[in-house]
Design a protein around this nucleic acid. Sequence first.
DNA 1: GTTGAGCGTT
Length: 90
Amino acid sequence: MSKLFVRSLSWETNDDSLKSKFSEFGVLEEAVVVKDRETGRSRGFGFVKYTNDNDAKMAMDKMDGTELDGRTISVVIAEDRRGGGGGGGG
DNA sequence: GTTGAGCGTT
């Protein structure tokens, strides 16, 4: 499993816009843009998960530093924040 | 009608 954390996203960037762009580097298992739960606006960052670890690194290396919707985005390996990790912590 | 560092929700 390879999850990527996209930062510096434009306010107009949506899940579809993000996917449409990253989908060119590999098959996206999930591409979503974190938005405010109240208003629903984009918080400026999103997540992208690839079905292949290689594709993830490719996109991360390729997309990172590029421009999206007019804003230079940053792509980095996202950490597993949600979920305490199956099997209980040690 | 706004804002700008960061790791989300079923």
